[in-house]
Amino acid sequence: MNKRQMLALIGIAVTSFFLAIALPLITPTPLTAQSNVTLLVSAAASLKDALEEIQPIYQQSKPNVSITYNFGASGALQQQIEQGAPADIFISAAIRQVDALEQKGLLVPGTRTNLANNRLVLIVPNNNTAIKSFFNLTDTKVRKIAMGEPRSVPAGQYADQVLKKLGIFDKVKSKLVFGNNVRQVLAAVESGNADAGLVYATDAKISNKVKIIVAADEKYHSAIVYPMAVIKSSKNIPAAKEFVDFLSSNPAKNVLKKYGFIVS
């Protein structure tokens, strides 16, 4: 190999070396696509309409986040989570269920907050003119009164408290029919299968088949609060925290107000 060939080879080697260093600096690195996340929210049945309306509003700003809801009685949802069922967020219609999960260490610390409040009301089918107060429930013409199952449905727990505080529980207990969630109670009154029912004001608001007779005095039952928190077993804790934060934002609050929830 002569001197000219040797210099040429050295030149090629030097050029290749500098190209190897420079190319990563001048070649744009493709942006990493944001990963898709699916959040499972276990929520009280009374929140169904409001949360379903909130979902597309949230996804406008977070298109990579899919929200799936599991609606039911708060007590049943609590038991599902305790037994290991998947859930990223829990929203209860009462404090007791979230307290139980917190005491068992199943919540992400610092994520618990209150979403909204509600009122308990006595409803009847639109064509009913005989019932004008809670005390009319003792009348012999009233045969069935629908309410939630007190052991698992917060609306049923509140109804139980009201009937006992008013001193009429023993007189009406033989008439009581129980729903597995508050929407079943609403459906029983809408269909005429019950002469009256105790539901949340927000449930009555979405129906054109029932009317509110009276709201229960709040001194007769525990405060109706909807606490929410991120579940510790969630595989998407950062995304779940963001959605919980959004539920406390003005866009979400406006939807909750539209459906009759009380928000601060």
Results as ranks from 00 to 15, higher is better:
residue 184 Q to A: 09
residue 192 G to R: 07
residue 2 N to W: 11
residue 126 N to Y: 04
residue 164 K to H: 02
residue 239 A to E: 15
residue 146 A to C: 01
residue 247 L to H: 03
residue 258 K to H: 14
residue 21 I to K: 07
residue 14 V to Y: 02
residue 256 L to N: 11
residue 254 N to S: 02
residue 191 S to L: 09
residue 183 R to Y: 01
residue 6 M to V: 13
residue 229 A to F: 10
residue 67 I to P: 09
residue 16 S to K: 09
residue 74 S to H: 01
residue 118 N to R: 01
residue 156 G to Q: 05
residue 8 A to Q: 15
residue 132 K to P: 10
residue 30 P to M: 07
residue 25 L to K: 04
residue 157 Q to L: 14
residue 178 F to N: 03
residue 25 L to W: 05
residue 189 V to D: 03
residue 71 F to D: 08
residue 137 L to T: 10
residue 117 N to V: 01
residue 187 A to N: 08
residue 221 H to F: 07
residue 130 A to K: 15
residue 231 I to C: 11
residue 91 I to R: 02
residue 158 Y to L: 07
residue 100 A to D: 15
residue 119 R to M: 05
residue 202 T to F: 01
residue 253 K to N: 14
residue 31 L to K: 12
residue 171 K to T: 09
residue 66 S to D: 13
residue 45 A to P: 01
residue 132 K to E: 11
residue 83 Q to R: 05
residue 126 N to A: 05
residue 63 P to R: 00
residue 138 T to E: 11
residue 42 S to V: 09
residue 144 K to G: 12
residue 60 Q to A: 07
residue 185 V to H: 02
residue 65 V to P: 03
residue 48 K to Q: 14
residue 188 A to N: 07
residue 88 D to K: 01
residue 211 K to I: 08
residue 139 D to M: 15
residue 144 K to E: 12
residue 90 F to C: 05
residue 241 K to E: 15
residue 223 A to P: 05
residue 99 D to T: 15
residue 14 V to K: 02
residue 256 L to E: 14
residue 239 A to S: 12
residue 22 A to W: 06
residue 106 L to D: 07
residue 40 L to Q: 08
residue 249 S to R: 05
residue 205 K to Y: 04
residue 4 R to I: 13
residue 77 L to F: 04
residue 254 N to R: 13
residue 87 A to L: 06
residue 96 R to T: 12
residue 19 L to Q: 03
residue 245 D to F: 08
residue 49 D to T: 14
residue 199 V to K: 03
residue 27 T to Q: 09
residue 17 F to V: 10
residue 62 K to D: 07
residue 33 A to R: 05
residue 55 Q to C: 02
residue 170 D to C: 00
residue 7 L to E: 10
residue 226 Y to M: 08
residue 18 F to Y: 10
residue 21 I to V: 10
residue 6 M to W: 12
residue 170 D to A: 09
residue 14 V to L: 14
residue 202 T to M: 11
residue 195 D to R: 09
residue 235 K to Q: 13
residue 148 G to L: 00
residue 248 S to K: 12
residue 15 T to K: 04
residue 184 Q to V: 04
residue 32 T to F: 13
residue 240 A to F: 15
residue 261 F to G: 05
residue 41 V to N: 01
residue 188 A to H: 00
residue 238 P to G: 12
residue 263 V to F: 05
residue 121 V to N: 00
residue 188 A to I: 03
residue 194 A to S: 11
residue 243 F to S: 03
residue 251 P to C: 10
residue 37 V to I: 15
residue 12 I to F: 10
residue 59 Q to K: 13
residue 124 V to T: 15
residue 10 I to V: 13
residue 33 A to E: 15
residue 101 L to Y: 05
residue 82 E to Q: 14
residue 57 I to K: 15
residue 123 I to M: 11
residue 177 V to G: 08
residue 228 M to W: 13
residue 133 S to R: 01
residue 182 V to H: 04
residue 127 N to H: 04
residue 182 V to T: 07
residue 181 N to E: 06
residue 234 S to I: 06
residue 183 R to H: 02
residue 11 G to Y: 03
